[in-house]
């Protein structure tokens, strides 16, 4: 009987799957795959950004008045928190790549996770403020500011839709970080193979970029239009 398994006529470097020639090729493939996923995410968020641009163009006064109701200080603080978390994430990837001690890698991952949680905490404070002021679109929505209050609900719908989807991505990112913390504490990652750390890093930075656009678009618009 013929052997069902393809005979191995070549050796594999350790940690490299059968279908790759080298560790470098394997990592390039992971990077490309992750970026293809991130491009789908760009288009996913892109639809919401397009909706935002179209409605802001249609109802500039309503958007300006509604945007004023957001707390710029909290928005700017959260932007700084996310940028700082991107730095710690980049340093975590760096630590994994140069083979720093386990403590350094786990430390940076924990710091990134903590900063992510700070962001979500501030976001929930902002959401609660909107709840108290009846500025969440729905039956209890109340808004009388500016020249066009009737269309302010569009701004707040987009605000909650976009920041909500962003926060959901942060929560997934926090889950990934927890996984990485456990795995790296177990010493699973080496200088030769730490692809999960790198790919989670790409994801985390992407989520940061989404916020880099959300912050000026939602918090900083048209403060002089009224």
């Amino acid at each position: 009987m013929a052997d069902l398994h393809v005979a191995h006529t070549h050796a594999h470097p350790s940690g490299v799957e059968h279908h790759f020639n080298s560790a470098a090729q394997q990592k390039d493939a992971s990077t490309v795959g992750m970026w293809v996923f991130l491009v789908t995410e760009i288009m996913f968020f892109g639809g919401l950004f397009l909706t935002y641009v179209a409605y802001r163009h249609a109802y500039p006064l309503a958007f300006a008045a509604a945007s004023e109701r957001l707390d710029i200080r909290l928005g700017a603080f959260n932007t700084a928190v996310l940028i700082f978390s991107s730095l710690t994430m980049a340093l975590a990837v760096h630590a994994a790549a140069v083979g720093s001690s386990k403590k350094v890698l786990v430390g940076f991952l924990i710091l990134t996770l903590v900063l992510g949680c700070v962001f979500l905490g501030v976001k929930s404070v902002e959401y609660y403020d909107k709840y108290e002021k009846h500025e969440i679109p729905g039956p209890n929505f109340e808004f009388h500011e500016g020249a066009d209050p009737a269309h302010a609900t569009l701004f707040f719908s987009l605000y909650f839709g976009m920041t909500g989807l962003h926060a959901f991505h942060m929560i997934i990112g926090a889950g990934l970080l927890l996984f990485l913390i456990v795995q790296s504490a177990r010493g699973k990652y080496t200088t030769a193979w730490h692809t999960p750390v790198e790919m989670t890093g790409l994801y985390w930075h992407f989520v940061d970029i989404v916020w880099i656009f959300l912050f000026p678009l939602l918090y900083l618009i048209d403060r002089h239009l009224k």
């Binding site: 970026w35 491009v39 760009i42 288009m43 991107s86 880099i212």
Partner: peptide, 25 residues
């Protein structure tokens, strides 16, 4: 962030093309 934190500046041409395609679309 894309070029340095996400290492695209140091990536392969294939990765760069995928990023550019995403932005283009």
């Amino acid at each position: 962030v894309v070029l340095f934190f996400m290492h695209v500046h140091y990536s392969t041409k294939l990765t760069k093309m995928i990023v550019a395609a995403g932005v283009f679309w």
